[in-house]
Amino acid sequence: MAQELYFEDINVGDAIPSVKKDPVSKDQLWRYGGASGDFNPLHMDDEWGTMAGMGGRIAHGMLLMGFVGQAVTNYVPKKYLKKFSVRFGSMTKLDDVITISGNIKDKRTENGGNIITGELLATDQNGDMKVTGTFEAALPSKSV
């Protein structure tokens, strides 16, 4: 799905196409629990989340990282991805609508590789920051 991407095509400041997710649902958290193997009741059970002071169940942090990863490999082919990291911000709850956006922060040639770095942000419908992410990719060059 990601278009082929060349180092020459990228400029610092370029926007990474944003991705708007469907509202986080119980169904999604159950499915993500099964897929990832994380059945922590905090993500599965509203009562548990309420007891923990979260006001209901909360989404898996790694699901949010998955959302950010979707935005990354929607833009940069997975095969070129070298590093990807996130820091978690506020908790994501049911019905939150997460949007991921970002831009290119740096491009450089290093040890013969054509490296780009990008930063991303996942926010909810109120603009609250859920996750910040960075990635590094090594792209092919048109001249080689």
Partner: peptide, 15 residues
């Protein structure tokens, strides 16, 4: 298991 993870995330990338 790879598909299941992509589906759970809701990532439609066909790769």
């Amino acid at each position: 298991k790879i598909k299941e993870l992509a589906w759970a995330i809701g990532d439609p990338n066909p790769i």
